[in-house]
């Protein structure tokens, strides 16, 4: 029974005298490899050239700030609950008087860690976040010599302050300004 038209019938007839010489077949194979000699190379010279990502690429996480440079995260824990790989841990702390320019809400994440070895970059944390404090950028985790190096702390992910260093902030924002603005 044939399910598709693509099935190929295997030819198992005994080899003829010409085929047993192998010469013809070897010649054919050599011509195929020779043709590849002149084909366009598929390799991209990585550090100099980079493959462009699609606009919906989900890479490393970024913890966001609002336009006044305050951290958006309130340590509600919804992202940790939403995470299917259980890669996110956090500890909450209360905002003290005088820290209003640092944190937007009264509660903030004192500790925020993502294990990049566990993370599957599904983007569910981004969808779960009610404050739009976390989103997935268009870079990927660089290699590291130890497992410890893959546990990203808050400092590793926090976006630069838009007021003090606007240029690096813009760079870190990536190609997602539309979404950021729509969520004010």
């Amino acid at each position: 029974m044939q399910l598709t038209q693509r099935a190929k019938h295997v030819d198992r007839h005994p080899m003829t005298w010409i085929e047993r010489l192998y010469f013809w077949n070897i010649l054919k194979g050599m011509l195929i490899t020779l043709r590849h000699l002149f084909k366009r190379k598929a390799t991209i010279n990585f550090p100099e050239q980079k493959r462009s990502f699609s606009s919906v690429f989900r890479g490393l996480h970024v913890l966001n700030r609002d336009e006044e440079g305050r951290e958006r995260c309130t340590a509600c824990g919804l992202c940790a609950v939403a995470c299917p790989a259980e890669a996110i841990t956090m500890e909450a702390a209360e905002r003290l008087p005088g820290e209003e320019q640092l944190y937007r809400e009264e509660k903030y994440a004192a500790k925020y860690e993502i294990n990049m070895l566990r993370c599957i970059f599904c983007g569910l944390c981004e969808e779960a976040c009610p404050k739009d404090a976390i989103y997935l950028s268009q870079t990927f985790a660089p290699s590291n010599y130890s497992r410890k190096g893959f546990i990203y702390k808050k400092d590793d992910m926090l976006i630069p302050n838009p007021l003090t260093e606007p240029e690096t902030y813009k760079k870190a924002l990536g190609e997602r300004p539309a979404k950021m603005i729509g969520n004010q």
Binding site: L34, H36, L37, K39, K41, A42, T43, N45
Partner: peptide, 13 residues
């Protein structure tokens, strides 16, 4: 180099 070219790669560069 030739191995790389035959396999559509660039080889040591």
């Amino acid at each position: 180099k030739v191995a790389a070219w035959l396999q559509d790669r660039r080889g040591p560069n």
